[in-house]
Simulated assay, not measured.
Amino acid sequence: MVIIPVIDLTAFSSSNAATQQAVVKQICQACHEIGFMYLQNSGISKNLINQVFTHSKSFFNLPLEVKQKQAWSDEFSNTGYVGIERERLNPNNPGDLKEALNVNKQAAVGIDASIVTFYDSCTELANTILQAYALALELPENYFTTRHNQQNHTLRLLHYPPLQTPSKPGQVRAGEHSDYGSITLLFQDDIGGLEVQTTSGEWIAAPAIPDTVVINTGDLMQRWTNHVFCSTKHRVMIPNDDRVKQSRYSIAFFCHPNDDTEITCLESCQKEQSPIYPPILAGEYLLSRLQASYGNS
């Protein structure tokens, strides 16, 4: 049975090389085998996370016409409010039963101080993970962080409202998809619904574990590493019990490389097989994926 590992990040900052390497090995194994992990001792305070969840609930409680004043307009800025069913993460299915607020670094400043602090804290944690990835792949420690230094990341507040009416055939809270960037940080409440697909095609639950952050690898990291690290399909299903009457909230931080970074197969990842993908610019890949998920709906 595949289990998503829980990894304690504390030892990564150890001055003892062997202790640090043990954590790097755990992270490498998780990225290779399942593409998901839970991180303990992430360095982001529980109080700050709670503040962002509180802000998120306040925003989604606003009348629809108020939220629509901040409507998401295009994939180039990729910021603003995304209404229910507006996005189809699985383009073959009906629109997702969720609403979202996409925030970049500039937009965070106009919202709330806690959002700015949280964005910065997520960036710091992402950089630590990217350093661990680099060491796991026999690269200089700053290999990935220097290619992410423009902070082209997206913070996404998500709300999955209670279901008042039956869903359409094939409709879920978030369709089956892989993430587009390098890595994703996910903070979720205890309502549940997140499922992860194993390499054998089985779907397993990824419930909230207190005081952890869910980390998963995205498409661009999979391309960079020639599938040494896998970008795993995941989805959010509709509960089949009373939780269907409750809101689910989560916060995702999508870590993206600088737009002009060429994602080309790493030399250390060509031992098992020759490059699977041609080189692509990070910004071009992100645009193509956003265009597919928003379509013309």
Rank of each mutant, 00 (worst) to 15 (best):
V214M: 07
E176C: 01
K105F: 10
T145A: 10
S200T: 03
D112L: 01
P169D: 12
F229C: 06
Q29W: 12
N61I: 00
N92Y: 04
I3Y: 08
T154K: 15
A30S: 13
Q21L: 07
Q29S: 15
I215T: 13
V103L: 09
A107S: 07
Y277I: 05
G80R: 06
V244A: 14
A11S: 14
A252R: 03
N50F: 01
N50A: 13
S231D: 08
L157M: 09
P63K: 11
G193Y: 08
N240P: 00
P5S: 05
N47L: 12
V244S: 11
L186F: 09
A18L: 10
N127G: 07
F59N: 06
D189Y: 02
N258R: 07
R223Y: 06
R223V: 08
P162F: 13
L194S: 10
I129S: 05
V82R: 11
I209P: 04
A17S: 14
L185G: 02
L64R: 11
N90Q: 02
S268M: 10
S77H: 07
P169A: 05
C230N: 13
R248Q: 05
E75R: 10
I115F: 06
Y133A: 08
Q68K: 15
V52E: 00
A113E: 13
C31H: 06
H256I: 04
P91V: 03
P94T: 08
A252H: 01
D112Y: 07
L130M: 05
F60R: 02
T261S: 14
Q21A: 13
P239V: 05
Q222G: 11
P140C: 08
Q40S: 01
A208W: 07
T264N: 09
L290W: 00
G83Y: 05
E202D: 08
F144W: 05
D260F: 10
K69I: 00
A282H: 03
V172M: 07
